[in-house]
């Protein structure tokens, strides 16, 4: 039990430090030119990298479902629709194909 509290405390302190230092470093960088372009591009880049890592760890069912979800996202631009179709697609591909 005590071990759990140490992990909780350590992870809380470390995570908050990461969050705070990200902001403090970001706030000290220039707000125009190359740095601004990099920060504007950061969300998309990070999400693209996150999806890449998730999908590499998946198999053909996940890749297929991702393709289907992407076409729904392109056509509808809807977050709930993409989530529902993506989950349904992966469930069908895993269980019935």
């Amino acid at each position: 039990m005590l071990e759990h509290w140490w992990v909780i405390a350590g992870l809380a302190v470390a995570t908050f430090s990461i969050r705070l230092s990200g902001y403090l470093v970001g706030a000290r960088l220039p707000t125009d030119g190359g740095w601004a372009r990099a920060f504007n591009a950061l969300p998309g880049c990070l999400i693209a990298a996150l999806l890449t890592v998730i999908l590499i760890q998946g198999e053909w069912q996940e890749w297929g479902a991702a393709g289907i979800a992407l076409s729904i996202a392109v056509v509808t631009r809807s977050l709930p629709a993409t989530m529902i179709v993506g989950v349904l697609a992966v469930w069908i591909l895993r269980n019935f194909v």
């Binding site: 998309g44 977050l79 993409t82």
Partner: peptide, 8 residues
Amino acid sequence: AAAFIAIL
């Protein structure tokens, strides 16, 4: 994964 696809 599906949500991040929609957000991207």
